[in-house]
Design a protein around this nucleic acid. Sequence first.
DNA 1: ATAAAAAAGTGATACAAGTCACAATATAAT
DNA 2: ATTATATTGTGACTTGTATCACTTTTTTAT
Lengths: 211, 211
Amino acid sequence: MRTLKDRQLEQLGKNHAVVKFKKDSTIIHQGMFSTNVVFLREGLVKVHITGPYNEQIVRLIKAPTYLGLPTTFGNKINQYSVTAILDSEACFIDINLFRKVLEENNNFSAYIIQELSKSELESYHRCANRAQKQTRGNLADVFLDLSDNIFESDSFTLPISQSDIGNLVDASRESINRLLSEFINDNIIEMKGRKVKILNKKSLQLISSNG
Amino acid sequence: MRTLKDRQLEQLGKNHAVVKFKKDSTIIHQGMFSTNVVFLREGLVKVHITGPYNEQIVRLIKAPTYLGLPTTFGNKINQYSVTAILDSEACFIDINLFRKVLEENNNFSAYIIQELSKSELESYHRCANRAQKQTRGNLADVFLDLSDNIFESDSFTLPISQSDIGNLVDASRESINRLLSEFINDNIIEMKGRKVKILNKKSLQLISSNG
DNA sequence: ATAAAAAAGTGATACAAGTCACAATATAAT
DNA sequence: ATTATATTGTGACTTGTATCACTTTTTTAT
């Protein structure tokens, strides 16, 4: 499946320039008219959406991935924002071309459907977790996600602020801060500025599943 | 698009029996092996998933809709459960047939992609709302959804228990009960058993957007 | 019809996490 | 370098909502 994606990317990317985005710059702007799908080649982004009160971070996604699909098939106004949280690279693919490739290549459709399905499932799980766990457990999950999936290492640099973490797990900045102190105090993680080292992943996993 | 769906349904449904489900019977069982996609022709269902502590109701969906797509393209184990909350009718479509139709009919793929995209967006919005509003606002949203989208009427019969509502909006049964009393007391809704009449939709909308 | 099981109603209490209010560092900008 | 701005660290206090512990009502089963 990976090779398919790459082959397809080649086809789609041939006549599309790669655009570089610095950390903190916005790749997709909610509310803006758009006629592109974005293929994120490299980097890490946050997807955020205007909530009833604040801007809400919905999820972090790392490359490679497609972004902005809902815009492609619904109206042409972006329904959410995507901001780079690490330097990233993306290519913009014209919607019509994208649709044409979908039409011509059934495997590609199947691939996109699969990705969307996966994302739906993840969404359900996130939903269930956030709701049932308390902040400590959700925070542990963020660190596990960063370590296991995003950076694939026990040492990494936090790509977002404590207040963003709070926003992501539906907690206040202050609560996150206090819980981080707690984690550090319990020798579960070590932090120097935003440099994180996970000292006791077992504990994190325990916290994730219990609290 | 609607006609396309109907045409497609015809094609898919031709050799597939319609199965009737009584209220409260399970249509899709999480954890079970399955080789079908379900097309819900008629009725109303809840999608629920095993959370870290409880079973979590993720959303209500009314017919017509496809269910179980993630199973189709990922592994063959159902990743969530779907239970009828009103008498419903569904047809079961063999995965291979479904895939074949997807392959042969690009419009159908496009339609499925569109549906999945829409569902992703809804998911993001639900997420942002649940997180930022308190229970009163989320409860108002449930009533607005039931009235505006699901039953398209100001009078309807609650299809789920208070404890399910609580589960759906991440609150306890008791909180829902207290808030309902409050709504009734404020002449926002009227309830006789599970028969609901919305008396003041404006208020509900206000509560939805403020609290 | 009657027993059994769910669902709904309600008070008392507890607590996780929000909010407010500053102080202390960092980071970015001129 | 030196402001200006953003982020982080903490204490004190408040609050929405969970939990517990019943009672009452409704529904389902026998």
